[in-house]
Simulated assay, not measured.
Amino acid sequence: MYVTTIILAVLWGAAAGLLVPRAAYRLSVAPEEPWRDRCPAEHVLAGPARGWLGGPGRQDCATTGSPHTAPLLTALACAVLAAATGGPRPELAVWLFVAPFAVLLASVDARVHRLPDVLTLSLAVAVPLLLGVAELLPYDAGSWRHAVLGALVLGGAYLVLHRISPGELGLGDVKLALPLGAALGWYGWDILFFGAFAGFLLGAVYGLGLVLLRRADRSSAIPFGPFMLAGGLLGLLLGAFTALP
């Protein structure tokens, strides 16, 4: 069952990751601009009712970046989450559901330094609700109450940091902190603090590296969403692993 769960998680991640490049291209616009509805080759990406995901794609409709990166990253994230969880626990379904959206958010933020509300706010509602369902099922390894409190605590902490230094942390980061706090809080306060700290540490190391390579200075803005998500992944892996019987 353990190996089967990992294989299914990889297949799910690869399949869901195939949808990420088109969606990332559609959403990678400035806040005042509408979502893209055509690719660089002028092929129609979506009709009026197809939302941010868009309609069926064309193989020759090129978007920025390699089309294989997102499926590989999503499959890898799903694989390590399934491996750390140790089997088909109900919260694993939540992590696997969220993984493609996390890769999508990281892709958009890396391109245009923006975390779209359509994703962050949807996840802020979906993650606590799904974890609430997970707690009702057998073999769960977390606490829904801690998840809700974790969302409030991490979201509140990021809001305070945004108020102190809005140039360093945007409102998109604050909104992303809500589902991230819920996911990390599911495993307890120590995992919440670890995941949040890991995100800041990864972002600081990346920024310092850019400065040392003279590709940026101390005033340069970097997209923080990918590091928040990477730290969150590390926290979930630690929480899932330590929760094993």
Rank of each mutant, 00 (worst) to 15 (best):
R58L: 14
R58T: 05
R58S: 13
D60W: 12
A62M: 12
T63A: 12
T64W: 15
T64C: 01
G65I: 07
G65W: 09
S66W: 04
P67Y: 08
P67N: 11
H68T: 12
H68S: 12
H68I: 11
T69E: 07
L72W: 11
L72I: 14
A75D: 05
A75R: 03
A75E: 01
A75P: 03
A75I: 06
L76K: 01
L76P: 00
C78A: 09
C78G: 00
C78H: 00
A82S: 10
A83D: 05
T85A: 15
G86A: 10
G86M: 09
G86R: 06
P90Q: 09
E91R: 08
L92W: 08
A93N: 03
A93L: 15
V94Y: 03
W95L: 15
L96S: 02
F97P: 02
F97E: 00
A99T: 14
P100A: 03
P100R: 06
P100F: 01
F101Y: 11
F101R: 09
F101M: 14
F101L: 15
A102Y: 11
A102D: 05
V103Y: 04
L104V: 05
L105M: 13
A106K: 00
A106N: 03
S107W: 10
S107C: 13
S107R: 14
V108Y: 06
A110H: 14
A110Q: 13
R111N: 05
R111W: 09
R111P: 02
R114Q: 11
P116E: 08
P116N: 06
D117G: 13
D117S: 13
D117F: 06
V118S: 10
L119M: 08
T120L: 02
T120K: 07
S122P: 00
S122H: 05
S122Y: 01
A124G: 09
V125M: 10
V125C: 09
V127T: 06
P128M: 04
P128Q: 04
V133R: 03
V133C: 04
A134N: 07
E135H: 06
E135I: 09
L137W: 12
P138L: 11
